[in-house]
Write a protein that binds this DNA or RNA. Structure first.
Lengths: 140, 140
DNA sequence: CAGCATCCACGTTGATACTG
DNA sequence: CAGTATCAACGTGGATGCTG
């Protein structure tokens, strides 16, 4: 029963204590990871780095709308988690290269499962939201 | 090449425009979905509802630490997106049952891909964070 | 080039009290 | 039972200016 997609999943289908204890949930690894990749830029950066290594300003130019601050913060977060490797070349001016670690690359697969689901069902979700909005408005 | 896990993924591996346009990214369906399931309670609720239908206070009791407000908001969000169906039984006192829609159930698979990854690598991530924390502290 | 420091706006989450 | 309303606290994200 260790599947992927067909049949029922493993961890998600695993028996949960009920009630779910607050203490344990606060440090749930699944929630922890999801909140990280659920932030605004992480996934995009991971996907870009999944294609090839990038330098800092190369990423900055490559991602319209991201601020220098958020690019730095996101990369630092990924580095702390061991998903991204940061290499400094002591040249003048300095060059810093970012690349996925093996751990980071191992996230690409699971990530794409959710990404593909999102792309596949985006219309359905959009229609559902529009329908809900109509109901809400007509009730006002 | 429409895989799941082995080989390189589909959407994630798809060519991205570079630079990634800010306008398009703002409404990227992948980011959109990830930000939703990246909130504090959504995944836990989806997983619980994946096991069986729940009534409101049953969920409230089942999830320690969630406020009534957040339970309502999260369920409303899931309902708007068409992942959860809300059925009101006009009894006295009222009973409201929540269950996953087929769309909601279809998310369980992709979700577990990430969840399993998180569980599998949680130690590695924790160690990486600890190591980073040590470096940071010793640099102060 | 590749950042860090500061300040600020906003969205999310939570506590509390009240209701059909 | 299953919510809504209000207020407060916090974290995330962004603008701007400065630096090795």
């Amino acid at each position: 029963m260790s599947d992927t997609h067909t049949g029922v999943p493993s961890v998600v289908a695993a028996p949960l204590p009920s009630p779910v204890p607050a203490d344990e949930y606060e440090q749930c690894p699944v929630t922890d990871v999801l909140r990280r990749i659920g932030d605004k830029w992480t996934v995009l950066i991971v996907v870009l780095l999944g294609r090839r290594p990038y330098r800092f300003n190369e990423l900055h130019r490559g991602i319209q709308g991201i601020s220098q601050r958020m690019l730095t913060r996101t990369l630092r977060g990924l580095e702390e988690d061991g998903l991204v490797h940061r290499e400094v070349f002591p040249t003048v001016p300095p060059a810093v290269e970012y690349r996925l670690t093996p751990l980071g690359e191992s996230l690409l697969g699971p990530l794409s499962a959710v990404a593909d689901w999102a792309v596949l069902h985006q219309d359905e979700i959009t229609r559902s939201r529009l329908a809900a909005a109509v109901v809400t408005t007509s009730r006002s």
